[in-house]
Design a protein around this nucleic acid. Structure first.
Lengths: 238, 238
DNA sequence: TAAATAGTGTCTTTTAGACACTATCGC
DNA sequence: GCGATAGTGTCTAAAAGACACTATTTA
């Protein structure tokens, strides 16, 4: 558990800048985020994004990777900056600037992280809005109960979903949620889960193949009780 | 002129967080940004984005508006957060976190700001890359000479263009560069300038009208030596 | 009437959706 | 062969591009 919490006085030679990381994966057909339970005020017993203070001699990216490594045990993931929030809690002395990052994990990395750190919670993210409109989200416990989130972390989670939806079509973020080799159906499942819609199969395949982002491996998935699908991997054609 | 520069020692009760604002408008068929000349080291005599330190009791948005108001004299503009940079200059004690903002000005506001603050420079932004690829940009003086930019401000300007291009089609940012009443040709010019391409006229008109973002005013532009175009204004249909 | 730009009708091309059909695996 | 899912052919619908044409203003 973190020795340093945001409620602590700002320590010597540290600024009041923190880095919080949204660790996002897919779980049972829903987006899911890894959360930690706070044991101190404010927001004791609320669930929070893993985060930490920015060290004086590290970059923002370094800090995000340090959070991933030290708090979750992850050293490999898609990582990008999301947005910078200022959380004001009444007392202006307590003002904190939070640079939020988004980390994307494939199923294996997500499950490994959960197994390694038993205090982590995999929270299902309920996204009640369609498209790129935005709005509030709800984080659900594994049993389906709504979770109380600390600080403005519900807003940060909502923005993470929004960003992911916006970038899914024109960038390669979708592949960060898949293992190295994957079937086109798995890729489509990722897109459908993130977007919260169903997609047309032939059109989706055409589009993905036309983008030139995936290359057939020549191998097929194993262990199915039906026709095995071809495995692809992410590879820009140029 | 600013009394406080980034090169100064961090003052009491101020964090090392700064806010820089890209003030973007369109000038002679090119994107243009408002820059200030630095008179102190580091980067003395280089051109820099207007910015300032974040005050302990203001939000990031407040700080961005304060920069716009105090340094440029602008109180009304489209303003959004762009990205947060950490600029490291060798000495880790000098590390600065910069939250970059993007402000969009229409021609009138852009010209007014230039007239009000004679030390401001309108720098043409040369964007050598197509689409949403990204890459370096060049800032040009009014006479066409490349300008030396301070810190990582060339990167920030490049990101501003990239963001604008990415959002132009699905958001309303384009209207922030136009006056309240505008013709469809003006709207198309804005899009073509930002994207650096030419667009098909009938297709553009169809698309804009179908979006339901603009409403005809029933009036027409005046003072033309040819058929005057109908004036529209920005107005979401729902 | 000439010049210039606004605005549109329509054909072609491209892209997406619908949907059924064939293909291939385990059992 | 049966069940299940992979993968495709093809028709339809929608959107974008091309391009010429008409419309309306000033001079």
């Amino acid at each position: 558990m973190p020795a340093l919490e945001k409620s602590d006085p700002i320590p010597y030679e540290r600024s009041s800048v923190t880095v919080d990381v949204v660790l996002l994966g897919l779980f049972r057909g829903h987006p899911a985020a890894l959360l930690l339970k706070r044991d101190q005020e404010p927001f004791a017993d609320h669930w929070a994004l893993p985060g930490g203070f920015l060290d004086i001699n590290e970059t923002l990216n370094d800090a995000a990777w340090r959070v991933l490594r030290d708090k979750i045990g992850i050293t490999d993931a898609h990582l990008e900056q999301l947005y910078t929030f200022d959380y004001v809690d009444g007392d202006p002395r307590m003002r904190i600037i939070t640079v939020a990052y988004l980390a994307l994990l494939d199923d294996q990395a997500f499950a490994d992280a959960l197994a390694r750190a038993p205090h982590l919670l995999s929270a299902g993210i309920e996204v009640p809005w369609q498209g790129e409109t935005g709005g509030p989200i709800t984080a659900l416990s594994p049993s389906g109960e709504p979770l109380s989130l600390a600080f403005d972390h519900a807003d940060i989670l909502a923005l993470a979903i929004l960003r992911l939806r916006g970038k899914l079509d024109y960038s390669d973020v979708g592949f960060a949620l898949l293992p190295e080799h994957f079937t086109l159906r798995q890729l489509q499942d990722v897109h459908e889960t993130i977007l919260g819609t169903t997609l047309n199969k032939p059109a989706f395949r055409r589009r993905m193949l036309d983008k030139g982002w995936i290359a057939a491996t020549g191998t097929r998935e194993a262990g199915t009780s039906y026709r095995p699908a071809e495995l692809f991997r992410f590879e820009r054609s140029k």
